[in-house]
Design a protein around this nucleic acid. Structure first.
Lengths: 201, 201
DNA sequence: CGCTGGAAATTTCCACTGTAAATATATAGC
DNA sequence: GCTATATATTTACAGTGGAAATTTCCAGCG
């Protein structure tokens, strides 16, 4: 159904195989997780031979990196979506942080892939760009934000890194199940539970 | 040479294969990284068939989990070693945080393995225990520590989680190369660069 | 001492993986 | 309409983890 009715349904050349493979990979990731994400499985879902991806991505690693890159785009979109609805600056900050965790909890396998050097090539320029756009969402919000309320030097860059590290670390620990608080039931973790007080200069 | 001279050098039963396999895995990890960590490679290094590990670990995943568990023990030891040399409480805190990062920078592949659900089984009791011992090092130090200097509620548990999240997130981001500050040369990241001011109650 | 049961490791086999090379097919440009 | 090129296929191969049957050794007991 994704194929337009205008095109003949069965062409030798797929036409947009590159994107189709990434989307197929994202789909497989949702249901089967990382172990199911094999070159042959992805190719089979699109309906091409398992060697077809090589033309576009070079290797499995290249394809996984492309999937991770798309992950970062969606990650940024998640945060931006939450931020848009917030009224003032403190609310925007909370929204971004919550968006960060909401994405990780909604797409845990994709989140894992995005930060796994075993699967992704972090030196890939496209991946780096996408990741920076994700960082930019937090960065934009933290302009004028002073974590330590003027008691310590370091400025905004310092606060940005703190924010990013804090939310990333908390998310990773929550996903790994190492933050299990009280019961065996899956609790919802809220980043604001460990956020310090902020002040705007 | 690790074999004692008292024992015949070539016995059918290894005697301590379980530990030998974990150590072999740690060795391979240092030189070849995660991709080199195959069941056959580990077994070959010890000098046994590739199916021998099954008796002790069940599967490759079980073996990797055991390696990760040993990783957490060494991780805790790294931090404790640094903490011991520190004089007062603030110095101990700095030492623990630096020890955390020092371990990750010294054994990046092992650190990656320890937090990768793709490789390790986080539901394994032994792994969880080892990880908690690692957490306990930070936890012990943060008794009486108040991040927000009494301006916010939450108490010690809150501060512990903040510390852990912050140092873990910063370490992960540093390792992934996403924190590249200025130059292409590998800079040394210092967690205290983004640490806020602390107060003890 | 001799036997026996079980633990430990081996051999063999299998399905599956990613990659490479040669081949077939379709599209785009002249 | 022909050719060059990009795209996808087929085939082959070395490597992987796991299962099953087999061999080897050791401990415990008569």
């Amino acid at each position: 159904m994704t194929q337009s009715l205008a095109k003949p349904d069965k062409t030798y050349h797929h036409g947009d195989l590159k994107n189709a493979l990434v989307l197929a990979g994202l789909d497989i990731l949702e249901t089967g997780g990382l172990p199911a994400l094999s070159l042959r499985a992805i190719a089979a879902r699109v309906g091409v031979s398992h060697t077809a991806p090589k033309n576009h991505f070079g290797s499995l690693r290249g394809l996984l990196t492309a999937i991770g890159t798309e992950g970062f785009r969606r990650h940024a979109a998640f945060m931006r979506a939450d931020v848009t609805g917030a009224a003032d600056k403190p609310a925007k900050l909370d929204a971004a942080m919550r968006g960060y965790m909401r994405f990780a909890q909604t797409h845990p396998h994709l989140f894992e892939l995005m930060f796994s050097p075993f699967h992704c090539d972090f030196s890939d320029p496209a991946l780096q760009r996408a990741a920076q756009h994700s960082y930019a969402v937090l960065s934009d919000i933290s302009t004028g934000l002073d974590w330590d309320k003027g008691t310590l030097p370091g400025g905004q860059r310092r606060t940005e890194l703190m924010l990013w590290s804090l939310v990333h670390g908390y998310t990773k620990l929550a996903l790994s199940g190492q933050l299990s608080g009280t019961g065996p039931d899956q609790p919802r973790f809220d980043i604001t539970d460990i956020m310090p007080g902020f002040g705007y200069r």
